[in-house]
Design a protein around this nucleic acid. Structure first.
Lengths: 106, 106
DNA sequence: AAAGTACTTGCCTATTGGGAAAGTATCCCT
DNA sequence: AGGGATACTTTCCCAATAGGCAAGTACTTT
């Protein structure tokens, strides 16, 4: 896998979102918002951004009577994340730190 | 060592600078500039920023007749970098990736 | 004297991220 | 039915940031 630094993923908030999604299959809005401690509007915008570039898939389903928005990494999103982690590995490796790549693929 | 995400270090350009400095004792201006491919002004400003917060020490010496500006991580800078790497480790660990901390101290 | 080295500083602009608040749509409660 | 709540989305606004360019500083080479 080729290492590719991804500015979009690197930004602190999106790094938190994407790595959270990398750990879970589907994560819903409230969970993400509360986990990374973000306002509704900020999260909404970041998810739209990530969706626009094809890194996340958004699902809007009704659970009972209530709408629930969930997000999941797309294959492209996971690849970009994995590559970004590799890029961090390369950058940080110079200092003596080592980053091992994700063990789980998509 | 406590993990602490550092926004200042996280920014792409400064992450490149700091991890470069983490690998070398002293690095001089031209070397950093050419390695991370930055303009003089941009590097100058970033080094000033890093110096202002106490993460780098700047040395201005004359080598022969020519001035040479060099930079080195301070202890605080190295600590902040190490802690930031740990913070990345924690974030990324959720996804199945593993980051090992730097092996070499200051 | 003119030009080059080695930066630094000021000016400007483009982009970004986030909060606040209003908007949309639906639902629960009284 | 009206009021408030849930679950977001969108608009408005602002503050911070980064980088390029150009000018400035200080000294050297030709």
């Amino acid at each position: 896998m080729k290492a590719r630094f991804d500015e979009l993923i690197h930004a602190p908030t999106r790094l938190a979102i994407v790595s959270l999604l990398a750990a879970s299959e589907w994560a819903d809005f409230k969970f993400i918002r509360d986990t990374i401690n973000l306002s509704d509007s900020a999260l909404s915008k970041q998810l739209s951004t990530l969706e626009d570039v094809g890194y996340v898939e958004i699902s809007k389903a009704f659970v009972g009577k209530w709408p629930r928005t969930s997000a999941k990494l797309t294959k492209a999103g996971r690849t970009a994340f994995d590559q970004h982690v590799l890029a961090l590995q390369e950058i940080v490796a110079q200092s003596g730190a080592t980053i091992l790549p994700p063990s789980g693929g998509s």
